[in-house]
Design a protein around this nucleic acid. Structure first.
Length: 270
DNA sequence: GTCCATGTTCTTTA
DNA sequence: CTAAAGAACATGGA
């Protein structure tokens, strides 16, 4: 469940738990999830204290007293708090155990990832954990976004998925943002008007903020089987009526990714 | 058995 | 050379 809002939710919920805690034991059950491959993560993390936890794009950054590491959830990754005595779920690749303190029971943090598109990256002291990443969408100004989009001829949908152009958006929220901005996903990025980029900049922020505000409740507390009303306006709604104009939502494949839009609200300007 | 999936990176093509 | 398009990665659910 990992685009910027989901990652932010994980960071927010984990932050108070792990801040100031010392890693007591490291159980790396699959070492090929760690980059660089020759980094000895267990001995590197042992006895280290977590001084901060933050998010950058889709990365969850653990700041240690020496250097930092970050977790990327890929498509199916999860960070779960558990008790050391809990049985391991399948595909649990890493467990960090935190020592008990007078004010808190001991607990473990587990990284579970069936598809293994995610992983753990170690960043040595002096290196930055966000090399090559584009700016954060929530603070990116319209003019700066316009400048970056003007540098590429790619379809706007593909451009927004490029983490080096703007960090944190994924397939769902790109489709949602383009719908809100009423921009057709195949529009060339460098052919968007300043007005359209302005709408897009605003739409991205609204979409992400709204998702962050609801992530705590929607994804966690509701189940599809209970008839959950998806908050998505276009994503995964092919053939269903547009929530604005009732026109059927269209699904196309763009850059190998399924792409959903309303053909009436998002006119093809090519 | 088939197709599809919230992501990234490597390879191929233009 | 660069930019863009495609394939590949691994597993599980519909």
């Amino acid at each position: 469940m990992p685009e910027l809002p989901e990652v932010q939710t994980v960071v927010t919920s984990l932050r108070a738990k792990v801040l100031g805690r010392t890693i007591d034991a490291v159980d790396l059950r699959r070492s090929d999830i760690v980059t660089p491959a020759d980094c000895d993560l267990p001995s590197t993390l042992h006895r280290r204290t977590i001084v901060d936890l933050s998010r950058r794009g889709k990365r969850i950054i653990f700041h240690l007293d020496v250097g930092c590491f970050y977790v990327h959830l890929g498509m199916t990754g999860q960070l779960l708090i558990a008790s050391a005595t809990d049985a391991f779920a399948p595909h649990t690749h890493l467990q960090l155990r935190f020592a008990a303190r007078p004010d808190q029971h001991d607990f473990v943090l587990r990284f579970v990832d069936p598809r293994r598109f995610g992983g753990i990256w170690w960043t040595a002291p002096g290196d930055v954990p966000d090399a090559g990443m584009g700016p954060e969408p929530l603070t990116l100004r319209s003019a700066a976004l316009a400048r970056r989009l003007a540098a590429t001829t790619r379809a706007i949908k593909s451009a927004l998925l490029d983490q080096s152009l703007i960090a944190g958006l994924g397939n769902i929220y790109v489709d949602e943002s383009l719908f809100l901005a009423r921009i057709h996903p195949l529009t060339a990025a460098d052919r968007l008007s300043a007005t359209a980029v302005g709408r897009l900049s605003r739409a991205i922020k609204v979409t992400l903020r709204n998702a962050i505000a609801h992530r705590g409740s929607t994804l966690r507390d509701y189940r599809d089987a209970d008839g959950v009303q998806s908050r998505h306006r276009v994503y995964d709604r092919a053939g269903l009526p547009c929530r604005r104009c009732r026109t059927a939502i269209v699904r196309i494949v763009l850059g190998g990714r399924s792409t959903h839009f309303c053909p009436k609200c998002q006119r093809d300007a090519r």
